[in-house]
Design a protein around this nucleic acid. Structure first.
Length: 117
DNA sequence: CATCGAACCAACC
DNA sequence: GGTTGGTTCGATG
């Protein structure tokens, strides 16, 4: 992720700090509607960063309430992780919101949304 | 469709 | 510099 700024009439660019990246990830994740999910890669592409980095930001997420990181799953519909609480709890949250799973335990395609900036 | 392996890239040590 | 991670993608049966 790149940050552009204007200094004395010149455009400069630098790599975003980890704090900036996390903030961007959190903002995007909090726009996922209730009862919907998106993938790590989807967020990563929107920001121009690596999917593993998205996961890393979410793992550091202290505000499980305000940032619905349980709505971010693998692109193939499998759950991915959820810190100590585990994927089982993550699935419970999603089911509570009305998300449906197939017989293999993967999120049904229809519940994926595209994140756009 | 399922499984497998490599590629991905920044953080962290 | 090597290891790790809440991934992804393509190749293969």
């Amino acid at each position: 992720m790149i940050v552009l700024s204007l200094k004395g009439g010149r455009v400069t660019c630098r790599r975003a700090t980890k704090r900036e990246i996390c903030e961007a990830v959190y903002i995007l994740v909090s726009t996922i509607p209730v009862g919907r999910v998106t993938s790590y890669g989807n967020i990563a592409r929107a920001l121009g960063i690596n999917p593993r980095l998205v996961a890393w930001c979410l793992q550091n997420n202290r505000d499980l309430i305000v940032i619905p990181c349980h709505r971010v799953v693998y692109s193939n519909g499998e759950l991915g992780g959820y810190r100590e609480l585990g994927a089982r709890f993550k699935r419970s949250l999603l089911e509570l919101e009305g998300v449906l799973f197939d017989f293999k335990g993967r999120v049904v395609r229809d519940f994926f949304v595209d994140i756009k900036i």
